[in-house]
Write a protein that binds this DNA or RNA. Structure first.
Lengths: 151, 151
DNA sequence: TCTTTTCCTATCGGAGCAGTAGGAATTAAC
DNA sequence: GTTAATTCCTACTGCTCCGATAGGAAAAGA
C-alpha cells in the first residue's frame, strides 16, 4: 500500500496555514522554510490544493496563500485526494487482469470487491479527521512541550 | 495509496488453490493458465506465500502447491503482507521529513498519527475477510451465473 | 520600472515494480 | 539411470511514476 509524499507535504502545508495566525496571506517560501521542504516542489502542491478549492492565493509582492474555508470544514481526505488524485487500488493499471471486454475475470471481481472495502475504510478514516482536529492536537502537543520545558 | 499487483495475484492464487478440489497438489502452471498470468512471475508469488507459511509445496514431477491451513484461517491481510511485505505509509522513505535525529518535526508527528490510523483501519478491513469468505462469495457468484444461464 | 511572488510547462534522475531468464535441485515414471 | 516435470534460487531488464529541479510568464506592490 502506498501514500505519496505529496500527501504528507500537503497536510503539513495546510496545517502550517491554519496555525499561522494573522490575516496576511502566508508565502510559500515561509512554509518551505518552516517545514523544511523544497520551495519549487511545494508550489506544485499548493497549486493542486488551490485547484481543489482548499486554499486561495494572492499573487504579486506580499502575496501568498490562505485557507479557502474554515479549518473545521477541511477534511484530511480532501487534502490527500487534492494532491494525490483519487485513491486507486491497485494504482498501476494491469491490463493482463482484464479479459477482452475490459471486464475482470470471476476471481478478479472478488478481489475488486475487497479493494472497494479497503478504499471505503481508508476514506472513512481520512475524512473523519479535519484540519481543525489536527490544529487542536498540535496545540496540545505544544502545551505539553512547554510544560516539560518548565520542569 | 498503492497496492501492488502482486497482492492481487496472490489473492487469486490462493483462491484458486482453495477452490480446486482434490487432494493432489496444484501446479503453478495450472494456476497460471486458469487465471491468465505469467508462470515465472507467479512462481515468485507462490514462493513468498510459502515462506510466509500460507501454502506448502511438493517438488518434482507431479509436485505443486496446496494451502498450508484451512481456508478459514487464512486472512486476506496475511496474503497481502506475505507478498507485498508490511504495509508502510508513505512507502518511500523521505529523509527530508526527518530532522537530524531521525525524528519527525512536530507537524510531522501529527501526520504520522494519521498514517497509523489509516494503516490500522486497512489492516482491520483486510483481516476481517478470510479466504473461506471469498470461496463462499465465489460459489454464490457461480450459482447466480448458472441460474442466469438457464433462463 | 523593479522586485516579489504566484503560476505554468517541461524536464530529469532514481527507485521500485511487473515481468523475464537461466539453471540448480528434487521427484516420479519408465 | 535416464528423462521429464516441477519447484526453487538468483540475477537481470525495461518501464513507469514520483520527488525534485528549472525557466520563465503573469500579476501586484513599491
Amino acid at each position: 500500500m502506498y501514500f505519496s509524499a505529496k500527501g504528507e507535504y500537503g497536510i503539513m502545508a495546510v496545517l502550517d496555514l491554519a496555525l499561522t495566525k494573522g490575516s496576511a496571506p502566508v508565502q510559500a517560501k515561509a512554509i518551505a522554510d518552516r517545514q523544511g521542504f523544497p520551495l519549487r516542489f511545494l508550489e506544485h502542491i499548493l497549486s493542486a490544493l488551490k485547484h481543489a478549492g482548499l486554499v486561495e492565493s494572492e499573487r504579486g509582492a506580499h502575496g501568498g496563500y490562505r485557507l479557502a474555508k474554515p479549518a473545521s470544514e477541511i477534511r484530511i481526505g480532501d487534502v490527500i485526494q487534492a494532491v494525490d488524485g483519487p485513491i486507486a487500488m491497485p494504482a498501476r493499471a494491469l491490463p493482463r487482469l482484464r479479459n477482452g471486454n475490459g471486464h475482470r475475470t470471476s476471481h478478479g471481481s472478488l478481489v475488486q470487491g475487497v479493494w472497494e472495502e479497503v478504499k471505503a475504510s481508508v476514506l472513512e478514516t481520512l475524512n473523519r479527521t479535519t484540519l481543525a482536529d489536527l490544529c487542536r492536537r498540535a496545540r496540545d502537543l505544544e502545551e505539553k512541550r512547554v510544560l516539560m520545558y518548565h520542569i
